[in-house]
Simulated assay, not measured.
Amino acid sequence: MTREITADQWRSVRRAYRVTGARFAEMVARVPDPGAMVTAEWTVADTVAHVALIAKMYRSLVRPESDPLLDAREQDQFEKTTVDTVFVLNKMMLQGLPERDIGVLVAGLLADIEEVLRVTEDADPATLLDWLGSSKVPLAGVLAHLVNELQIHGWDIARALKLPWTIPPGDAALFFELFLVGVVTHGIGHLADTDEPPRERRIAVAFRSAYTSPVVLVLHRGRVTVEEPGGPVDARISFDPASLNLMLFHRVGKVRSALTRKIVVSGRRPWLLPAFLRVVRLP
Protein backbone atom coordinates (compact mmCIF):
# COMPACT_ATOMS: atom_id res chain seq x y z
CA MET A 1 0.00 0.00 0.00
CA THR A 2 1.36 3.41 -1.00
CA ARG A 3 0.17 6.60 0.66
CA GLU A 4 0.03 9.85 -1.27
CA ILE A 5 2.21 12.66 0.02
CA THR A 6 -0.11 15.64 0.12
CA ALA A 7 0.71 19.22 -0.82
CA ASP A 8 0.16 20.22 2.81
CA GLN A 9 2.67 17.62 4.03
CA TRP A 10 5.22 18.78 1.46
CA ARG A 11 4.81 22.40 2.53
CA SER A 12 5.01 21.41 6.20
CA VAL A 13 8.20 19.39 5.89
CA ARG A 14 9.90 22.10 3.81
CA ARG A 15 8.97 24.71 6.41
CA ALA A 16 10.19 22.46 9.24
CA TYR A 17 13.44 21.75 7.35
CA ARG A 18 14.30 25.45 7.33
CA VAL A 19 12.84 26.45 10.71
CA THR A 20 14.31 23.54 12.69
CA GLY A 21 17.71 24.13 11.14
CA ALA A 22 17.56 27.80 12.12
CA ARG A 23 16.46 26.95 15.68
CA PHE A 24 19.27 24.41 16.03
CA ALA A 25 21.83 26.90 14.73
CA GLU A 26 20.60 29.59 17.10
CA MET A 27 20.83 27.28 20.10
CA VAL A 28 24.32 25.92 19.42
CA ALA A 29 25.60 29.45 18.78
CA ARG A 30 24.93 30.12 22.49
CA VAL A 31 26.97 27.15 23.69
CA PRO A 32 29.90 28.51 25.74
CA ASP A 33 32.09 25.42 25.37
CA PRO A 34 31.96 23.42 22.10
CA GLY A 35 34.10 20.78 23.78
CA ALA A 36 31.46 20.03 26.43
CA MET A 37 30.32 16.41 26.37
CA VAL A 38 26.82 15.74 25.09
CA THR A 39 26.96 11.93 25.10
CA ALA A 40 29.54 9.46 26.36
CA GLU A 41 31.45 9.83 23.07
CA TRP A 42 30.41 13.09 21.39
CA THR A 43 31.06 16.71 22.30
CA VAL A 44 28.80 19.57 21.22
CA ALA A 45 31.09 20.12 18.23
CA ASP A 46 30.99 16.43 17.29
CA THR A 47 27.19 16.47 17.47
CA VAL A 48 26.94 19.55 15.27
CA ALA A 49 29.40 17.99 12.81
CA HIS A 50 27.26 14.84 12.65
CA VAL A 51 24.10 16.80 11.81
CA ALA A 52 25.99 18.98 9.32
CA LEU A 53 27.26 15.84 7.57
CA ILE A 54 23.72 14.51 7.18
CA ALA A 55 22.61 17.82 5.67
CA LYS A 56 25.58 17.70 3.30
CA MET A 57 24.75 14.11 2.34
CA TYR A 58 21.17 15.09 1.50
CA ARG A 59 22.44 17.99 -0.61
CA SER A 60 24.47 15.40 -2.51
CA LEU A 61 21.44 13.08 -2.85
CA VAL A 62 19.25 15.75 -4.45
CA ARG A 63 22.09 16.93 -6.71
CA PRO A 64 23.40 13.68 -8.23
CA GLU A 65 25.44 15.65 -10.80
CA SER A 66 27.60 17.12 -8.03
CA ASP A 67 30.74 15.54 -6.66
CA PRO A 68 29.85 12.56 -4.41
CA LEU A 69 30.19 13.19 -0.69
CA LEU A 70 31.15 9.60 0.18
CA ASP A 71 34.33 7.87 -0.92
CA ALA A 72 34.22 4.26 -2.13
CA ARG A 73 34.71 2.80 1.36
CA GLU A 74 32.02 5.01 2.88
CA GLN A 75 29.63 4.29 -0.01
CA ASP A 76 30.04 0.55 0.53
CA GLN A 77 29.27 0.98 4.23
CA PHE A 78 26.30 3.22 3.35
CA GLU A 79 24.77 0.52 1.14
CA LYS A 80 25.21 -2.35 3.61
CA THR A 81 24.43 -0.48 6.83
CA THR A 82 21.83 -1.86 9.21
CA VAL A 83 20.19 -0.21 12.20
CA ASP A 84 22.75 -1.98 14.40
CA THR A 85 25.79 -0.87 12.38
CA VAL A 86 24.92 2.71 11.46
CA PHE A 87 27.34 3.85 14.16
CA VAL A 88 30.18 2.51 11.98
CA LEU A 89 29.21 4.82 9.12
CA ASN A 90 28.78 7.74 11.51
CA LYS A 91 32.28 7.16 12.89
CA MET A 92 33.83 6.89 9.42
CA MET A 93 32.20 10.10 8.23
CA LEU A 94 33.10 12.07 11.36
CA GLN A 95 36.73 10.99 11.02
CA GLY A 96 36.64 12.30 7.45
CA LEU A 97 35.47 15.73 8.62
CA PRO A 98 38.09 17.18 10.99
CA GLU A 99 36.34 20.59 11.16
CA ARG A 100 34.98 21.27 14.66
CA ASP A 101 34.53 25.04 14.58
CA ILE A 102 30.84 25.44 15.36
CA GLY A 103 30.53 28.66 13.37
CA VAL A 104 31.92 26.99 10.24
CA LEU A 105 29.79 23.87 10.75
CA VAL A 106 26.57 25.83 11.30
CA ALA A 107 27.20 28.01 8.25
CA GLY A 108 27.62 24.87 6.16
CA LEU A 109 24.52 23.28 7.68
CA LEU A 110 22.31 26.27 6.89
CA ALA A 111 23.74 26.61 3.37
CA ASP A 112 23.07 22.94 2.64
CA ILE A 113 19.53 23.21 3.98
CA GLU A 114 18.81 26.16 1.70
CA GLU A 115 20.37 24.43 -1.30
CA VAL A 116 18.19 21.34 -0.82
CA LEU A 117 15.10 23.54 -0.59
CA ARG A 118 16.12 25.46 -3.71
CA VAL A 119 16.85 22.37 -5.81
CA THR A 120 13.66 20.57 -4.77
CA GLU A 121 11.25 23.51 -5.00
CA ASP A 122 9.44 22.03 -8.01
CA ALA A 123 10.28 18.38 -7.32
CA ASP A 124 7.83 15.56 -6.74
CA PRO A 125 7.92 14.83 -2.96
CA ALA A 126 7.32 11.15 -3.70
CA THR A 127 10.55 10.84 -5.73
CA LEU A 128 12.44 7.84 -4.34
CA LEU A 129 16.03 8.29 -3.22
CA ASP A 130 18.61 5.63 -2.35
CA TRP A 131 19.14 5.61 1.40
CA LEU A 132 21.00 3.63 4.07
CA GLY A 133 21.17 -0.13 3.74
CA SER A 134 19.94 -0.08 0.12
CA SER A 135 16.55 1.18 1.30
CA LYS A 136 14.35 3.61 -0.62
CA VAL A 137 12.92 6.79 0.91
CA PRO A 138 10.67 9.43 -0.67
CA LEU A 139 12.19 12.88 -1.00
CA ALA A 140 9.74 14.23 1.59
CA GLY A 141 10.85 11.47 3.97
CA VAL A 142 14.51 12.42 3.57
CA LEU A 143 13.67 15.99 4.59
CA ALA A 144 11.65 14.67 7.54
CA HIS A 145 14.65 12.57 8.61
CA LEU A 146 16.92 15.61 8.91
CA VAL A 147 14.18 17.47 10.81
CA ASN A 148 14.16 14.61 13.30
CA GLU A 149 17.97 14.51 13.53
CA LEU A 150 17.99 18.22 14.36
CA GLN A 151 15.23 17.71 16.94
CA ILE A 152 16.85 14.70 18.63
CA HIS A 153 20.39 16.08 18.71
CA GLY A 154 19.09 19.50 19.69
CA TRP A 155 17.42 17.73 22.61
CA ASP A 156 20.74 16.03 23.46
CA ILE A 157 22.66 19.31 23.55
CA ALA A 158 19.94 21.18 25.44
CA ARG A 159 19.66 18.44 28.07
CA ALA A 160 23.43 18.21 28.60
CA LEU A 161 23.92 21.99 28.86
CA LYS A 162 20.54 22.88 30.42
CA LEU A 163 19.42 25.01 27.48
CA PRO A 164 15.82 25.53 26.33
CA TRP A 165 14.68 23.30 23.46
CA THR A 166 11.22 22.31 22.30
CA ILE A 167 10.05 19.68 19.81
CA PRO A 168 6.76 20.78 18.23
CA PRO A 169 4.52 17.71 17.93
CA GLY A 170 3.36 18.56 14.42
CA ASP A 171 6.95 18.73 13.18
CA ALA A 172 7.91 15.57 15.07
CA ALA A 173 5.01 13.76 13.40
CA LEU A 174 6.63 14.28 10.00
CA PHE A 175 9.30 11.70 10.87
CA PHE A 176 6.74 8.98 11.53
CA GLU A 177 4.40 9.80 8.67
CA LEU A 178 6.83 10.69 5.88
CA PHE A 179 10.04 8.89 6.79
CA LEU A 180 9.17 5.79 8.81
CA VAL A 181 6.00 4.90 6.90
CA GLY A 182 7.75 5.94 3.68
CA VAL A 183 10.76 3.64 4.08
CA VAL A 184 8.57 0.71 5.14
CA THR A 185 6.32 1.29 2.13
CA HIS A 186 9.08 1.46 -0.46
CA GLY A 187 11.57 -1.07 0.91
CA ILE A 188 13.75 -1.11 3.99
CA GLY A 189 16.58 -2.95 2.27
CA HIS A 190 19.09 -4.30 4.80
CA LEU A 191 18.18 -1.84 7.56
CA ALA A 192 16.34 -4.34 9.75
CA ASP A 193 18.66 -7.29 9.09
CA THR A 194 19.54 -9.26 12.21
CA ASP A 195 20.91 -12.71 13.02
CA GLU A 196 17.52 -13.63 14.49
CA PRO A 197 15.49 -15.99 12.26
CA PRO A 198 12.19 -14.54 10.97
CA ARG A 199 9.12 -15.42 13.02
CA GLU A 200 6.18 -17.12 11.35
CA ARG A 201 3.74 -15.27 13.60
CA ARG A 202 2.08 -12.23 11.99
CA ILE A 203 2.09 -9.15 14.26
CA ALA A 204 -0.03 -6.12 13.35
CA VAL A 205 0.30 -2.85 15.27
CA ALA A 206 -1.98 0.15 14.77
CA PHE A 207 -0.49 3.61 15.29
CA ARG A 208 -2.61 6.67 15.96
CA SER A 209 -1.96 10.25 17.05
CA ALA A 210 -3.63 13.63 16.78
CA TYR A 211 -1.02 14.67 14.20
CA THR A 212 -0.88 11.68 11.84
CA SER A 213 -3.25 9.57 9.76
CA PRO A 214 -4.01 6.17 11.34
CA VAL A 215 -1.81 3.42 9.94
CA VAL A 216 -1.06 -0.25 10.63
CA LEU A 217 2.45 -1.71 10.43
CA VAL A 218 2.66 -5.48 10.00
CA LEU A 219 5.61 -7.76 10.71
CA HIS A 220 5.37 -11.17 9.03
CA ARG A 221 8.18 -13.59 8.21
CA GLY A 222 10.77 -10.89 8.65
CA ARG A 223 9.07 -8.39 6.34
CA VAL A 224 7.49 -5.13 7.48
CA THR A 225 4.59 -3.74 5.45
CA VAL A 226 2.04 -0.94 5.70
CA GLU A 227 -1.71 -1.58 5.81
CA GLU A 228 -4.76 0.63 6.05
CA PRO A 229 -6.54 0.55 9.45
CA GLY A 230 -9.74 -1.40 9.88
CA GLY A 231 -8.53 -4.99 10.00
CA PRO A 232 -7.64 -7.04 13.08
CA VAL A 233 -4.56 -5.87 15.01
CA ASP A 234 -2.62 -7.26 17.95
CA ALA A 235 -1.68 -3.97 19.58
CA ARG A 236 -2.65 -0.32 19.35
CA ILE A 237 -0.31 2.58 20.10
CA SER A 238 -1.63 6.08 20.75
CA PHE A 239 1.30 8.46 20.83
CA ASP A 240 2.60 11.96 21.19
CA PRO A 241 4.98 12.25 18.19
CA ALA A 242 7.88 13.89 20.03
CA SER A 243 7.71 11.31 22.82
CA LEU A 244 7.58 8.41 20.36
CA ASN A 245 10.65 9.67 18.51
CA LEU A 246 12.60 10.20 21.73
CA MET A 247 11.65 6.70 22.88
CA LEU A 248 12.51 5.05 19.54
CA PHE A 249 15.93 6.70 19.64
CA HIS A 250 16.48 5.58 23.24
CA ARG A 251 16.42 9.06 24.77
CA VAL A 252 13.40 8.37 26.96
CA GLY A 253 12.51 5.00 28.48
CA LYS A 254 9.39 3.02 27.64
CA VAL A 255 8.25 3.00 31.26
CA ARG A 256 8.53 6.79 31.60
CA SER A 257 6.64 7.27 28.33
CA ALA A 258 3.85 4.99 29.54
CA LEU A 259 3.64 6.56 33.00
CA THR A 260 3.31 10.06 31.55
CA ARG A 261 0.62 8.77 29.14
CA LYS A 262 2.59 10.14 26.21
CA ILE A 263 2.46 6.66 24.70
CA VAL A 264 -0.49 4.39 25.44
CA VAL A 265 -0.50 0.71 24.43
CA SER A 266 -3.69 -1.34 24.22
CA GLY A 267 -5.17 -4.12 22.11
CA ARG A 268 -5.87 -7.84 22.19
CA ARG A 269 -2.26 -9.04 22.35
CA PRO A 270 -0.03 -6.17 23.49
CA TRP A 271 2.56 -8.64 24.78
CA LEU A 272 3.59 -9.19 21.13
CA LEU A 273 4.84 -5.60 20.88
CA PRO A 274 8.40 -6.32 22.15
CA ALA A 275 8.90 -8.91 19.38
CA PHE A 276 7.64 -6.36 16.86
CA LEU A 277 9.96 -3.64 18.16
CA ARG A 278 13.00 -5.93 17.98
CA VAL A 279 12.64 -5.70 14.19
CA VAL A 280 10.93 -2.31 13.73
CA ARG A 281 13.60 -0.36 15.56
CA LEU A 282 15.90 2.61 15.21
CA PRO A 283 19.59 3.17 16.13
Score class of each variant (00 low, 15 high):
G189I: 12
A49R: 14
D240H: 11
L146R: 08
F87Y: 04
I237L: 09
E41A: 13
V44R: 02
V255N: 13
A158W: 07
G103D: 11
L97V: 09
T166G: 06
R59E: 14
Q75E: 15
G133E: 09
A275V: 05
Y58W: 10
P64Y: 05
M37K: 11
G96H: 09
A206V: 00
S238Q: 08
L277D: 05
P270L: 09
D112S: 11
A210D: 12
R278K: 14
F24C: 12
E99A: 03
R118T: 13
Y58E: 11
E196S: 10
Q9Y: 13
T225E: 02
R268S: 08
E228R: 08
A45I: 04
K56R: 14
L272I: 08
E79V: 13
G170N: 04
H250Q: 15
S209A: 03
L248N: 01
V264H: 02
P34A: 06
H220N: 03
Q9V: 11
A275I: 04
L89A: 01
W165H: 07
S134C: 11
A52T: 12
P169A: 11
S12Q: 15
V218Q: 07
L70S: 07
P125S: 13
K136L: 04
M1W: 08
A160K: 05
L129Y: 06
T81W: 02
L117D: 05
V13D: 06
L219C: 00
A242E: 09
V218Y: 07
R63C: 14
F24A: 12
R208K: 14
R256A: 09
D67M: 02
I54V: 13
A172E: 10
M93C: 09
T20P: 05
D46A: 05
E227L: 09
L217F: 11
R201C: 01
V106S: 08
R63A: 15
V31R: 06
Q95G: 15
S134T: 12
S243E: 01
E149A: 13
D193W: 04
L174I: 04
H145W: 07
R281M: 02
F179H: 03
A52W: 06
D67Q: 05
T82E: 10
V265Y: 02
D130T: 06
R14Y: 10
R278A: 14
V255Q: 15
V28P: 06
F249E: 03
V13Y: 07
R199K: 08
V265G: 00
F176A: 03
S243V: 02
G141Y: 03
V147C: 04
N245V: 10
D33W: 02
A126C: 08
V279C: 06
T85L: 06
A126W: 10
R202W: 02
V226N: 14
P270M: 10
A22W: 01
A123H: 14
E114T: 12
T260Y: 15
V116F: 10
V280C: 00
G108W: 03
G154I: 08
K91C: 03
V183S: 05
R11W: 01
